[in-house]
């Protein structure tokens, strides 16, 4: 019973992140790109499939020869790291853009016109 509840929660979380990614892409949010949508879809659909069909991992274990516990840990770790990296990339992108905008505003505000006469000094 607990197993089913946990899998349902994980499935719902995956659906939530997936729909959020799709929604941002459809709204043409500033940092939404095809690459991010595809990457996000691959991850969250994988999580969703595994939450509905957990026995898929046995098949993967059998094919790759992983121990069950190791396989689960690696997968969970991968998902967590993926989320963190994506989040960091978005933050970095936003920050870079903000810095450039500020630098540009400052440059335009302080634009000077240097006459030909000044160059002769």
């Amino acid at each position: 019973m607990l197993n089913i509840i946990l899998r349902t929660i994980i499935g719902l979380i995956a659906l939530s992140f997936l729909s959020s990614s799709i929604s941002r892409f459809l709204r043409r949010a500033h940092t939404a790109t095809w690459f991010k949508l595809m990457a996000s879809a691959i991850i969250w659909i994988s999580v969703l499939v595994l939450s509905i069909f957990p026995s898929v991992t046995h098949e993967i274990n059998r094919i790759f020869g992983f121990g069950e516990n190791l396989n689960t840990l690696i997968f969970l770790g991968f998902v967590i790291v993926f989320i963190i990296v994506f989040k960091l990339l978005s933050i970095i992108e936003r920050t870079e853009r903000t810095v450039t905008d500020l630098v540009r505003k400052d440059a335009l505000r302080n634009m000077i016109k240097v006459s030909h006469e000044k160059s002769k000094r």
Partner: peptide, 19 residues
Amino acid sequence: HNAGGIYLLQHMVNRGKGA
């Protein structure tokens, strides 16, 4: 600036050619 006859702007930090 010494060349003169231009509009001159300056980025306070390097942002790249595109910027």
